[in-house]
Amino acid sequence: MNQSRRDALKAGAGMGLFGLLVAAGLMKPEIARAEWNKVAFEAKTLEEALKAMGASDAAESGDVVITAADIAENGAVVPVGVTSKMDGTQQIAILVEKNPAALAATFTIPAGTVADISTRVKMGQTSDVYAVVKAGDKFYMAKKEIKVTLGGCGG
């Protein structure tokens, strides 16, 4: 089986799952729809990504907490978690300052949902990682330096 056919089957299987969840009433159609901010995801610098997200004026807040190891032995899969303690959290974004494209992930938080996400990001080198939270139409952020080692040898 060629690679493009595999990719098409994988995509179809994923879309089929969303369709099934919507049909069963377990997921609303508006939740299944992905929101894509192309300009923010293509931004090369942290400042460009924040501007594209409308978060240039994000203020640091102790209510935004990043959970990640201080040292990542494998930059290809760096576990990062973000928790927002703010009521009305609408969105959480993770940005990696020294990556070729700063914005690594965004998550839309439905009303009434606990604002606690975790994912894995790719990091090419030691960098500050930013969590940006949108709550009540304002933006807040936290930052944490994560050191990426080469082969687990330090750096």
Rank of each mutant, 00 (worst) to 15 (best):
I92M: 05
R33T: 11
V114N: 07
D116L: 12
L17Y: 08
L50N: 07
T89C: 12
G12T: 06
E60P: 14
K85A: 11
A102M: 09
A59K: 15
A104G: 04
K98V: 00
M27D: 01
M53C: 03
K44L: 11
P29L: 00
L95H: 01
A32T: 13
D57W: 07
G54Y: 01
A111C: 00
V96T: 01
V80L: 00
K28I: 00
P79A: 10
T89W: 04
E97M: 09
A72S: 12
L21Q: 10
E42K: 14
E30Q: 13
D57A: 15
L46K: 10
A69F: 01
F41L: 13
D70P: 02
S56W: 01
G75C: 09
I117N: 03
V22R: 11
R33Q: 14
V80K: 00
P79I: 02
A105I: 06
T67K: 12
A101I: 01
V78P: 00
F18D: 13
L26Y: 15
D116V: 09
G16R: 10
K51T: 10
E47T: 14
T106L: 05
A32E: 07
D87K: 15
L20Q: 11
L95F: 03
I66D: 06
T108Y: 11
P29F: 03
G62Y: 02
V22F: 06
G81Q: 01
D70S: 08
K98P: 01
L46V: 06
A72R: 00
V22M: 14
A76R: 15
G88D: 12
T106D: 04
K51N: 13
V65L: 06
S84F: 04
Q90L: 07
